[in-house]
């Protein structure tokens, strides 16, 4: 058992989901994306959500991150039910507590790396210095470059720096390596791992790449809208060791 997983055993849940269902209406067809999911995200842990596309993992992540509301069920953050919050409260939740990393980076093309990070630190209550956040992901030298001047991996690392610069309680990553080649993907995962270890940020990573699961404390297998299996890794692999 690693130090982290030992600590995990004693930590309390930071985010709790109870009986989440989500039904999308697409024309006349009803799509049941989640079918009653119960789930706890423990403080400081790294969770990987594995599943084929269409399994509902993104829907779950979106609801946990306050981007979407469940059709039924509840999500508690710090004792507050965010599943019945209004738009303003959800915005505040995302702004103060959640960091997002997306598959396609979603950087603002008209801002430099530093400015993209500053975009978030300017509205956060207790942020890191943008330069420090970028140094953390190994981009100290590329700080004044615009997205168009950065490689895909570099852009994704800027996105990670942007997500963690506000020192969020939760870091949610949706297919962060989906658009990257193997080597660059490893670099990005290293950055995520580093943030989780050094800052203790609770991290959830969505992927369909089973290899990535080896770096998690817990692995949630999702299929057909529900959690089919939970695996606790006795030993977390470091991102550097991953091969696919």
């Amino acid at each position: 058992m690693t130090i982290a997983s030992a600590a995990l055993a004693h930590s309390s849940p930071i985010l709790t989901a109870l009986g989440l269902t989500k039904v999308y209406k697409s024309g006349l067809v009803e799509v049941r994306a989640l079918r009653g999911v119960d789930f706890e995200l423990m403080g400081g842990e790294m969770v990987v959500l594995l599943g084929p596309s269409g399994s509902g993992k993104s829907t779950l992540l979106n609801i946990l991150g306050g981007l979407d509301l469940p059709t039924s069920g509840q999500v508690f953050f710090d004792g507050h039910d965010i599943s019945s919050a209004d738009d303003a409260a959800l915005t505040r939740f995302r702004r103060d507590h959640v960091g997002f990393v997306f598959q396609f980076y979603n950087l603002i093309p008209s801002l430099t790396a530093r400015e993209n990070v500053a975009l978030v630190t300017e509205i956060a209550p207790n942020p890191l210095d943008p330069a420090d956040a970028l140094a953390l992901v190994g981009l100290k030298e590329r700080i004044d470059h615009f997205p168009a001047q950065l490689s895909g991996g570099e852009q994704q690392r800027v996105a990670i720096a942007r997500a963690i610069a506000k020192q969020p309680e939760i870091l949610l990553c949706d297919e962060p390596t989906g658009a990257l080649d193997h080597e660059t993907g490893i670099l990005v995962l290293e950055a995520i791992e580093q943030v989780n270890r050094e800052l203790g940020t609770t991290t959830a990573v969505i992927t369909h790449n089973t290899v990535v699961a080896d770096m998690a404390d817990r692995v949630l297998h999702i299929a057909d809208g529900s959690i089919s299996n939970i695996v606790i890794n006795s030993e977390r692999c470091s991102a550097k060791e991953l091969r696919w």
Binding site: A88, T91, R92, R95, F102, N106, I123, R162
Partner: peptide, 16 residues
Amino acid sequence: GRELATLRVLGFTRGE
């Protein structure tokens, strides 16, 4: 739209 939606996800309000 994409840029603005990203900002919304990052916690920017509609006003911002």
